[in-house]
Design a protein around this nucleic acid. Structure first.
Length: 610
DNA sequence: GTAGGGTTAG
């Protein structure tokens, strides 16, 4: 029977299975979109269906409104509305409602989900099944909400639903999203039977998210050994791990792997590749991937703009942003991180202010990062009062990054009133972050306030704070060599030390005076100079010089900020040895060619890394 | 009608 033939008066006389077929056809035809759903809803009402079929129609509409393909923003409230009209909701109805909640934009899916779940339990029947838990866990993963997720975990256990592979991947993904890799791994290892592709992908993604790059890549290898074929979703996480590690050779290899295996490079994977090439220092390749894309969404444009910004290619970044607006692609707050940080990096205060109001006009709520960009923008232009009043006027409480930015800038402008309040706020917010102690100690050391330096050291002991060791890595022949400060575990350390001495000689001949304030300890000048030479970035650069020949680019990745003294030395090395050196520190790129750096030393005002 | 992905200021 064809649904168009059905008239309102006929519904009562038809057998139920025919009516249901009619409902299914009608709902299927209207997907996707809320408007189409409402229209179908209206038509179904006009048909005056018998009670049971009407309930059936409502659950079909509900399922359709919650399916990921319906992609309507207002789905949760509409789904609730439908649900409330169903006299005796089945488990299917509850499941659909919960699924609809996880797609809620700007709502509180985890809390709402737990409420619906409790309501289901209170009703006594129907009982939650594996679908219920899988959807509910998904809702907790999008936030992510660990507390609610753990409640659901214990529910799954108590109701015997834990062995379901869908519940297991749901749990695994929840823990991975919450950055609880140990818990995720426990679920992963406890999975019965063969692990499915989703489980492998979620686990690799979990490792990659927290920066456990070696674990992510190791698991990727294990996965292949287990004969599970990765798909484009897996590869997004693998590429993202390469981006985090700054491992260019590995990233290139993985890209070749994707091509070799014929894995579809879709929108998301292209975006991941843009990010990887940008973060690994090959901005041209990033642009190449971007240009080759058939369609680009907000995230793709944002990745490209942010990538250009971290490379200091400010004009290109801003031009691309205008192009994005011309093409009517809606920017989001991440896009504005790229735009505003580009302005900050080249001191474009007025442009930055203008983009800030553009952002408000577009109705984009500023994130902490957006505020941070503005503070940085004012600070770099020495507009300390404006920066300070901006910080105190923020709609959300400023975090430690914001106070740190303000602290360093106010020190450089000799605004000790702001230094005082910023350092106080900083230590209140993060009494256990070693970075703050290093920063403050350096600050006092540069003023030769040794009593304050030792006070900081005392505070560190009191709070049981340990300094994070600087760690730099360099890839040689596909192998990642890691160096930490004063590290002599490397098998070729003798050769490296010999070269370091030669570098030190050339540096002195170039007229550079070691900036010993970068050494935390209150020791003799000579010892400080030795300590500087053993900084991890210097060890890695020396190793690169030792193992490669020009025109091979020496690429180093460091976990912390570049040491200001090593930054000067890298400039001299690039000229003296005629080598191109690219160092990615925790925040940005430094490309050294013929004695100067692409950051134009702008990150380092009066010897302090900003 | 059941699970998995990318961009984030210093």
């Amino acid at each position: 029977m064809h649904h168009q033939q059905l008239k309102p008066g006929e519904a009562a006389s038809l057998p139920r299975h025919l009516l249901e077929a009619h409902v299914v056809a009608l709902v299927r035809r209207c997907c996707p979109g809320l408007l189409a759903l409402r229209a179908a809803h209206a038509r179904l009402i006009r048909l005056r269906l018998p009670r049971l079929t009407a309930a059936f129609a409502l659950s079909k509409l509900l399922a359709s409104s919650s399916s990921s393909s319906s992609s309507c923003g207002a789905a949760p409230s509409y789904a609730r509305n439908l649900f409330d009209q169903i006299p005796e909701p089945t488990a299917f109805c509850y499941n659909s409602l919960i699924r609809a909640l996880s797609s809620a934009a700007g709502a509180t899916p985890a809390a709402d989900t737990v409420l619906v779940y409790r309501r289901m339990l209170r009703a006594g029947s129907p009982l939650p099944n594996s679908f219920t838990l899988a959807f509910a866990l998904k809702a907790c993963s999008v936030v992510p909400a660990l507390g609610e997720g753990r409640q659901l975990h214990s529910q799954a256990f108590r109701r015997g639903l834990e062995p379901s592979p869908y519940v297991q991947t749901g749990l695994l993904n929840l823990y991975a999203k919450c950055e609880e890799v140990a818990l995720a791994r426990t679920v992963f290892d406890g999975m019965v039977g063969d692990k499915n592709l989703a489980a492998w992908s979620a686990m690799i993604g979990g490792y990659s998210r927290v920066g456990m790059v070696n674990e992510a890549l190791g698991l990727f290898r294990e996965m292949q050994a287990a004969d599970v074929n990765p798909d484009e979703v897996t590869m997004v996480s693998v590429i993202s791990a390469c981006a985090k590690a700054g491992a260019l050779d590995l990233g290139r290899w993985v890209h070749a792997f994707i091509d070799r295996k014929g894995i579809t490079v879709d929108l998301e994977l292209s975006t991941a590749l843009i990010d990887m090439y940008a973060k690994c220092g090959l901005i041209e390749r990033a642009k190449g991937v971007f240009d080759a894309m058939a369609e680009r969404d907000t995230k793709a444009w944002s990745a490209m703009i942010v990538g250009l910004a971290i490379h200091g290619l400010v004009e290109v970044a801003l031009k691309l942003f205008s192009r994005m607006l011309e093409l009517k692609v809606r920017p989001n707050n991440v896009t504005f991180i790229g735009v505003l940080s580009a302005c900050a990096h080249s001191g474009l205060v007025n442009e930055g202010r203008r983009y800030w109001s553009t952002m408000q006009e577009l109705g984009i709520k500023p994130s902490m990062e957006n505020y941070g960009c503005m503070v940085d923008l004012f600070c770099r232009s020495s507009l300390l009062d404006e920066a300070y009043s901006f910080v105190t006027g923020m709609a959300i409480p400023p975090n430690s990054v914001i106070w740190r930015t303000l602290l360093v800038a106010s020190k450089n402008s000799n605004r000790f009133d702001i230094v005082q309040s910023a350092s106080k706020k900083l230590l209140e917010l993060e009494p256990c972050n070693p970075e703050n102690y290093v920063l403050l100690s350096n600050l006092y050391a540069s003023n030769s306030q040794w009593d304050r330096v030792s006070y900081m050291r005392k505070k560190m002991k009191e709070n049981n704070v340990n300094v994070v060791a600087g760690c730099s890595s360099i890839e040689i022949n596909g192998y990642l060599h890691k160096f930490v400060v004063s590290d002599d575990s490397h098998p070729e350390i003798k050769e490296i030390r010999l070269l370091l001495r030669e570098i030190a000689d050339r540096v002195v001949r170039a007229g550079h005076k070691p900036w010993t304030a970068a050494v935390l300890h209150d020791v003799g000048e000579e010892e400080k100079e030795v300590a500087l030479c053993e900084h991890s970035e210097r060890l890695a650069i020396a190793y690169g010089l030792l193992k490669t020949k020009a025109p091979h680019v020496i690429r180093v990745v460091k976990n912390l900020r570049f040491c200001p003294d090593c930054h000067e030395v890298a400039k001299i090395v690039s000229k003296s040895y005629d080598r191109e050196i690219i160092v990615r520190d925790r925040v940005r790129f430094h490309r050294f060619v013929e004695g100067s750096c692409s950051c134009k030393d702008f990150w380092m005002v009066h010897g302090f890394p900003l």
